[in-house]
């Protein structure tokens, strides 16, 4: 089914809008989002161009080097944090790009700066190619891997609900091509663990856990009668009311989950980038993210 260009273009507008909103609401992520906002312009341009050019899968890396990399590089140098800029300028050579990009697509271990540049440049092209990007990588598809390109899940989100008593599907979103696909609700997105006791969900206290579907009713003190609405803080009072950490004790990984039912303005990829305190908390718990995001968190 063809998705209209307008609908897809809207993604970039949404990302830009959300980055701006969160920059103001979440000052702790202002630096990250400021840079991300600047990068978005270069990425959107690359995406638009790639949609017209439609490079063959085999040519994606060389195409990216020639048509996309310069603008991404420039935006990074102009707006990126000094350590990143310095690393790029000192250690990075354009000639290395193709091997780095290939290593990234193959899922090999990379330096943070390498991972950054490969991802920042190649992903808009993959996103533009859509399912055609699937011909690129090898490896398994579906389940815990992107059904299109085989990438790992960057994040998880719960779709917004169209009905009050409906809990919608959980989706995973690809680190590489931004494809999202439905995934089993209570199962680790890294190793497939499904035993409840091995799966931990962390949320900011006072926040409704995935606040759609049934209304939140808290356990009452024994003296109080039941059934009255919760004395819990309003969902709005928590910063991360619509987010949670989905951790797995079996493989020690986590993924951030964004609940679109809890916040209709959220854009998963942006909120995930900006929720730095949740990442810090997860790391304290001994968990590592299934795959670091664009900004290295």
């Amino acid at each position: 089914m063809a998705i209209s260009a307008a609908a897809v273009a809207n993604r970039w507008t949404q990302r830009r809008r959300r980055a701006q909103e969160l920059r103001e609401a979440w000052p702790f992520s202002a630096e990250v989002l400021g840079f991300y906002g600047a990068l978005l312009d270069a990425q959107e341009a690359a995406w638009s161009q790639a949609r017209m050019d439609v490079p063959a899968p085999a040519d994606v890396i060389s195409y990216t080097r020639v048509r996309v990399l310069p603008a991404i590089f420039e935006a990074t140098v102009r707006s990126g944090p000094s350590k990143l800029v310095q690393s790029l300028l000192e250690r990075y050579e354009v000639a290395d790009f193709e091997s780095i990009a290939k290593a990234w697509l193959d899922g090999n271990e990379l330096l943070p700066v390498e991972r950054y540049i490969a991802r920042a440049a190649v992903s808009p092209v993959l996103e533009a190619l859509g399912t055609a990007a699937g011909a690129l990588g090898s490896g398994p598809r579906g389940g815990r891997h992107c059904p299109s390109c085989g990438g790992r899940p960057q994040l998880s989100y719960f779709a917004a609900s169209s009905e009050e008593l409906l809990t919608p599907q959980r989706y995973l979103e690809c680190e590489r091509c931004a494809t999202s696909w439905p995934y089993t609700r209570m199962t680790c997105a890294a190793c497939g663990e499904s035993r409840s006791m091995q799966l931990a969900v962390f949320t900011e206290e006072g926040v409704a856990q995935a606040g759609r579907g049934a209304r939140v009713v808290r356990r009452q003190p024994a003296a109080a009668d039941l059934g009255s609405e919760a004395a819990a803080p309003e969902p709005g009072s928590a910063r991360f009311a619509h987010m949670r950490i989905d951790g797995c004790r079996s493989c020690s990984t986590y993924v951030l989950t964004v609940d679109l039912g809890g916040n209709g303005r959220a854009v998963p990829v942006v909120d995930e980038l900006a929720a730095l305190p949740l990442d810090l908390y997860a790391k304290e718990q001994g968990l590592r993210k299934i795959t670091p995001n664009l900004m290295g968190f």
Binding site: G142, R170, P182, Y183, R185, S194
Partner: peptide, 10 residues
């Protein structure tokens, strides 16, 4: 077993 509508095709 929990292979439900999260992946209908499969």
């Amino acid at each position: 077993r929990r292979d439900g509508v999260q992946d209908i095709a499969k």
